[in-house]
Nucleic acid binder design. Sequence first.
DNA 1: AGATGAATAGTCGGAATCGACTATTGTGTG
DNA 2: CACACAATAGTCGATTCCGACTATTCATCT
Lengths: 174, 174
Amino acid sequence: MDERSLLLLGMLKSQSQHGYQINEFIEKNLSRMVDMKRSTAYTLLERLCDQGYVDGTMEQAGNRPQKKVYTITPTGEQKFFELLHEYLKHAGVIQFPFDIGLMFLDSLPDEDVSLCLQGHLQELDRQIVGFEQTPRHGFGRGVDLAVEHRLIMSRAERDWVASILQRFQSLTDE
Amino acid sequence: MDERSLLLLGMLKSQSQHGYQINEFIEKNLSRMVDMKRSTAYTLLERLCDQGYVDGTMEQAGNRPQKKVYTITPTGEQKFFELLHEYLKHAGVIQFPFDIGLMFLDSLPDEDVSLCLQGHLQELDRQIVGFEQTPRHGFGRGVDLAVEHRLIMSRAERDWVASILQRFQSLTDE
DNA sequence: AGATGAATAGTCGGAATCGACTATTGTGTG
DNA sequence: CACACAATAGTCGATTCCGACTATTCATCT
């Protein structure tokens, strides 16, 4: 059971909803923080139902197409709090694929490195703008904090990459 | 083909070696940056052989037990450079499971949040000490840079979490 | 009326990863 | 000498995740 289940439980805790809604929300609002595909979300929702943490009921509202509405159960809420504590408390091992690149930097001519890092920097800037423009007060202080977290992390990385880039450029220029 | 293959190709580029050595090195020196289990490494090495990027030959050195020595091929080197450019250039979407926790912070009493964040902080401090104590000059500037990268990222996160924690504690104390 | 598209629900097979397990041989210790 | 341990090689089944695909119903447009 990982942070994706925490996300699903959390979203259902704030409001019962159906899979499509959940997926839309994640794609539109959280794609910068979470990477979970639609089919995975459906699978996970099914599992949560099997485990009794969520209750899924088909509804026929008026004559609209069928919807399956998912609702968190009391045990689901318990589980939610358990997971929430866990993920707030633990830092875990974050993996930056970029680091693997960095490790082998030496195999590349300084010029290539400069070019790559420039590209990297631009991507980071784009990400930062994205976070800066993310509307706040999604569903509470918490979401804003998460965005702020990502923002300061991206900025820290950008500043560092920029400083490294300068090192390389001064080597190349001289 | 992901960053794990880049790592394997890179390690083999610097030196032909056998799977056990590779796994040992990753476990002992890179466990803070990369999470890849032994069986995965073996699987990946096999695949790299199939794809012609690596050549694996059983060797019977003296009367020691069998070793399978993996050596990077010319196409493997090409692939290595390709992947290296890719991973240096792109920032990708980093996922912090912590963020999912943050999003739902509001569901927890401030006191709980304080306790969790204190735990988080301690873990981060441990990680930072780990990076600080990582011996430098592993196989070149690059490795040092990667460690430095992780170090500044962890510090940035620690400082931020500490500031958030203070906010919560001042709320709780009053 | 028929076509098209959006909202909603999935399903299914394949790839990736891991944990736990097995096998072989040399070396060192009691 | 016997036994355990380290070094080396995997294998295999379970689980997870994803991409691509399908199905249904209504609304809208021609």
